[in-house]
Amino acid sequence: MNDHTAKGRFIAFEGGEGTGKSTQSQLLAGALRTLGKQVEVTREPGGTKGAEAIRELLLHPPGEGWNAQSEALLFAAARADHVARRIRPAIDNGVWVVCDRFVDSSRAYQGVAGGLGDDAITGLHAFGSHGLRPDCTLLLEVDEDRLAQRLAARDGEDSDAIGGRSIDYHRAVAAGFRSLAEADPDGFHIVDGTGTPDDVHARVMKLIGPMVDPA
């Protein structure tokens, strides 16, 4: 059975702001295509027209912005549309989906750093997206000093509503991701995000090797 008729796979990159998720998503997709896989690269919030519209509301909120509950609901709504219209159909058609962020971002950002708790986030995900989990979640970690340098180079003074939050908030996010990964060692791989993009990509490929060639 070839990759166009077999069920596809779902890989998500997670991590805080500036850890290299978008870059690594593109590098992984390119490597998988060279191996003969059909690949879609997508992101959250986003990936469909409806979810991209919600992304704009989240990153550039109107008026006074959103409280924690409203923010979590918007993320869950964007994800539900993304899963129903893009991710599940792709996987069912034998496509490998590589996603820049998925539900574990909501668990770390809104659940941990936002104080809503994991049950609230996973409950929304169960309702909106039938609890879909990636086959593999790659958590990119970069030390705080390097991260600050990357964010300054990337955003300057122009951060979005979530990226521009306090250092304490982002520390809580990083701790949240780490605790999620440690609690689910079968579902997560923790990846050292330091070094060149090619260095990090080599680590990623080593970790997902058994998925690509499960001989």
Rank of each mutant, 00 (worst) to 15 (best):
H125M: 09
I167K: 15
G8S: 10
L59A: 03
E182D: 14
S105P: 07
S25E: 03
K21Q: 01
H82S: 09
A181P: 12
F75K: 03
V142W: 02
V83R: 07
A51F: 07
L74W: 08
E64C: 13
Y169K: 02
H189M: 01
Y109F: 14
P214Y: 00
R150C: 07
G115V: 10
A108C: 05
G209M: 08
I91D: 00
H189P: 00
L27V: 11
L57T: 11
I190N: 00
P185W: 01
T137R: 06
T5A: 08
A148S: 12
P62S: 09
I91G: 02
S129N: 01
H60Y: 08
A51Y: 07
A148C: 09
A174F: 02
G164E: 11
L59I: 15
K206N: 07
A6M: 11
I167E: 13
D81A: 13
L35S: 13
Q110C: 01
N2C: 12
E44Q: 04
M205G: 01
D199Y: 08
H189G: 00
D104A: 02
A80M: 12
L73Q: 10
L116K: 03
R178A: 15
Q38M: 09
H4I: 14
M1H: 10
D135P: 10
R203N: 04
L139R: 13
R55L: 04
V204F: 06
L74A: 12
E71V: 12
